[in-house]
Design a protein around this nucleic acid. Sequence first.
DNA 1: AGCGTTTGATAGTTTTACTATTAAAAAAAA
DNA 2: TTTTTTTTAATAGTAAAACTATCAAACGCT
Lengths: 232, 232
Amino acid sequence: MSVDYIIMIAQLQLQLNPSLYLRDPQSSDLGQRIITESIKLIDEMGFEAFTFKKLSIAINSTEASIYRYFENKHRLLIYLIAWYWNYLDYKINYETHNIKEPKEKLRIALKFIAKELSDDDMFSGVSESALQRVVIQESDKTYLTKNVDLDNKEGLFRGYKSLCVTIAEYVKQINPEFEYPHSLVSTCLEAAHQQVFFAKHLPTLSDINGKEDIHQQNLEFLTTFIFKTISK
Amino acid sequence: MSVDYIIMIAQLQLQLNPSLYLRDPQSSDLGQRIITESIKLIDEMGFEAFTFKKLSIAINSTEASIYRYFENKHRLLIYLIAWYWNYLDYKINYETHNIKEPKEKLRIALKFIAKELSDDDMFSGVSESALQRVVIQESDKTYLTKNVDLDNKEGLFRGYKSLCVTIAEYVKQINPEFEYPHSLVSTCLEAAHQQVFFAKHLPTLSDINGKEDIHQQNLEFLTTFIFKTISK
DNA sequence: AGCGTTTGATAGTTTTACTATTAAAAAAAA
DNA sequence: TTTTTTTTAATAGTAAAACTATCAAACGCT
């Protein structure tokens, strides 16, 4: 691990919008336990059944203490999902940094978007595989609320938008005449987790079958769909 | 309105899976009020803030009475969304019935998927425009739960899957070699409402701008991406 | 008029989503 | 090392949500 790499990570952490929390969970032991355990719990029981009461028991603390870090469980979810998109955005920017060819950049981006994170991928104590499952099942709930406009004004969705814009840039470079780069990329980002969910739970809605490598098939689908759509 | 049409509607209503409710809301005045008012309320306040208590006040009845029709508010949402997909599936089947050319069938299907329903479109007392807004904002919540597999086994998502399969058939007829017809169509169906939501609330994620006709632009985007993806 | 079904009224339980207060513990400053 | 400040834990409490149960009134039907 080079010094540069450490600096990049530090910046990545700092980039998380302070509006995402009341008190920075990265700044204390309790805060970090809130993050790691909430990912586990939401992954296991789903966001609806998840409560601060249950979380407080899991981390051997109290509800009141958790409320000092996050206004409510919805905000905590937004934080977790934002962390993931920021992480992906960082990773994709890092991996495509010295690539010239936009098609290659797009290919790399898609690879990271569709890639399954493994259980031993850990990033400052966070189980990335559990977080990825949380993203697959819960991410849309962050913005599908009557509060979107206010939350968006606070910049809570910055990471996701940034990632979308980054990749839309590659699309524009490949085909400057294509009229819907952002729509295509957001559709693709959404499809990336939707198709995994469908493959596992509503297989009629997908041709990706659970028997083979879901993430590999998904990558092929997304690649086909995005490159064909922007072809001239 | 022809007799055939009436029969089709009757069938459409009957096709709604009885597992969707405890007591058929179409069968009584109170049941119908539950449906029409719940659509209004969810549209206005969002699904999270919506409660049976509020609904009972709106329909001048009691919580207990509503619980005789639906097990809980999540089941009611599933019912409303299922109604919409069944309605769309019926409409698309009806409108493409005597069309031979699969490309034309697909075009018609997309037209109905992307079409904005107007305030005066009413179908047995249901405000279709309000229901469509509910679909845009809430539909994904029907299946993004830990209960999906059980709900799916009960056939609660039959309408959506049926619509997806119908359109995937057109895709297969246009290009039998295309490997992901269902994935492409489910991606398209999801994008159809996602893009409207993004255009209104997270415009960075979309090229569809709120100033012009969102639904028309959306149709163009969806048409471009689906036809390009399946082109040889 | 009598019967079964549907609805309304009322009441009660458990859980969730918070807020407030105070004391103890830990960290930082003097 | 003592003092001060900040953080956390413990406890308690509230309002609303998500139900369940009971019973009587109303209604539709034969």
